[in-house]
Design a protein around this nucleic acid. Structure first.
Length: 424
DNA sequence: TCTGGGGTCCTAGGACCC
DNA sequence: TCTGGGGTCCTAGGACCC
């Protein structure tokens, strides 16, 4: 059996840990730039606030019901996420962190009858130690565990946030009450397609033939999905130590930008952040790409129109040193920039990642290379302990006119001394 | 002028997830 | 007026090779 542990309305729960006065009242959290709503408490959902909808469209609903609003505070969420995952590791060696607020645990070897009590213990300890409430779904496959988890969330009181589906009857019943668009791996496109075929719930989907799924649901992905729904595990537990194959840092600008100097600063800043992520997993990049997205002039109904303009370069040798990456990145952005045009977003992607085997000072390399590594180590240490960019490259700029809006951000209670929670 | 078949590798783009 | 950011996996199609 496999379990998925999923934090309830994670970002909202994080805000509430330090605002107990909001424990029972509606809360939402906004994306970067205060653009979309990306987390809603149950109370906010009840008032009809939609997921991933633009903030400005929900604003009147939010004001009308006196819903508390926060800009996203990734500093805080990252820290609380780490605490939740560490707590889970006190129960199992096989914790697979799937996202900032979700983890799978492999329960094979445990008697099925013992699992619900074990899960309840996990739920209680995480809540007691971190203040974050979680829901747990348990089933023979990851896809079914996700479905069980949704049921636990939907019926919090009845299930106490823990739901196991193990027998054929339990699984069939769960599949019947799950709509196809709620199945893990079925997005909007495929949901529409399935509904056109007359398949509306997960039970009907599970009865489709694998060849059919192969033809209509994206090849092997589709066949795997059918197997998983039928209790045959195809999505295995991943090695948690696996490193990323690509690293990206991309952002919208707070306001559209036309000045090349501002864009260069943004690119240098994003490159620094990406290089940091690169070093954290002990990799070096052998290719850099950058993109910018012009603000589209015509206001068509679909705001996603106006796509990225990209440039790409292969480096002569892989590196993880920030300034060796900034230089090509800025050169690329210069080649893309058109004077007089207005841009709304830019990004940097590092790929062709290889292990940086010589992350330790290397006797056989030129001294400059070694001192660069030591420099990077120091910069990372300072920036990590303080969080945010205390040390940064001059090319990243100091005024940062282009940076995103975050007007409603809470304090970084757990990672900044001067923002510690105060009790009077 | 006429022009096979099979394989690999790479890239772009689609779909999905949270 | 105002719509995130960071990833993964898969497929199709082009370039190239013999």
């Amino acid at each position: 059996m496999k379990a998925i542990i999923d934090c309830n309305s994670f970002y909202c729960s994080c805000e509430r840990v330090f605002r107990p006065d909001l424990a029972k009242s509606p809360v939402v959290v906004l994306s970067n730039n205060d653009g979309c709503i990306i987390s809603r408490s149950d109370e906010a959902k009840k008032f009809g606030v939609g997921m991933a909808g633009p903030y400005f469209k929900a604003k009147h609903l939010i004001q009308q019901h006196n819903i508390a609003v926060f800009s996203s505070n990734y500093n805080l969420y990252g820290d609380l996420s780490w605490r939740v995952m560490e707590t889970l590791r006190t129960f199992s060696d096989s914790v697979e962190v799937y996202s900032v607020d979700e983890a799978f645990i492999d329960l094979s070897g445990m008697a099925t009858k013992d699992i619900p009590a074990f899960a309840m213990q996990i739920r209680n300890r995480v809540e007691q130690w971190t203040g974050i409430s979680v829901s747990i779904g348990i089933a023979p496959t990851k896809t079914l565990a996700k479905i069980a988890n949704h049921m636990a969330k939907r019926k919090k009181i009845e299930t106490q946030c823990v739901k196991m589906i193990a027998t054929k009857q339990e699984i069939d019943a769960a599949l019947r009450e799950t709509r196809v668009e709620g199945v893990w791996g079925i997005g909007r496109k495929n949901a529409d397609k399935l509904i056109n075929f007359g398949i509306t719930n997960a039970f009907e989907l599970s009865n489709m033939r694998e060849e059919w799924a192969n033809k209509h649901l994206g090849g092997v992905v589709g066949t795997r999905l059918i197997k998983e729904l039928n209790g045959i595990p195809c999505i295995e537990m991943n090695d948690p130590l696996e490193t990323k194959k690509m690293i990206a840092t991309t952002r919208m600008f707070g306001d559209p930008v036309s000045d090349i100097q501002n864009i260069r600063e943004a690119i240098a800043t994003y490159t620094s952040r990406a290089a940091e992520k690169l070093r954290r997993q002990h990799s070096a990049a052998s290719a850099v790409s950058v993109f910018i997205v012009p603000k589209e002039e015509d206001h068509m109904s679909d705001f996603h129109r106006g796509s990225a303009i990209t440039a790409h370069t292969n480096l002569s040798s892989a590196t993880s040193i920030t300034h060796e990456l900034i230089k090509p990145a800025v050169a690329l952005i210069d080649s893309l920039y058109e004077n007089g045009r207005l841009y709304k977003k830019a990004g940097v992607m590092l790929s062709g990642l290889v292990p940086d085997s010589s992350i330790q000072a290397n006797l056989f390399e030129p001294a400059s290379k070694n001192s660069n590594r030591m420099l990077m180590g120091m910069v990372d240490n300072v920036n990590f302990s303080m969080r945010d960019d205390v040390l940064k490259y001059a090319s990243s700029g100091t005024t940062r006119d282009w940076k995103m809006r975050q007007e409603l951000r809470s304090k970084r209670y757990t990672s900044r001394w001067e923002e510690l929670f105060e009790v009077r």
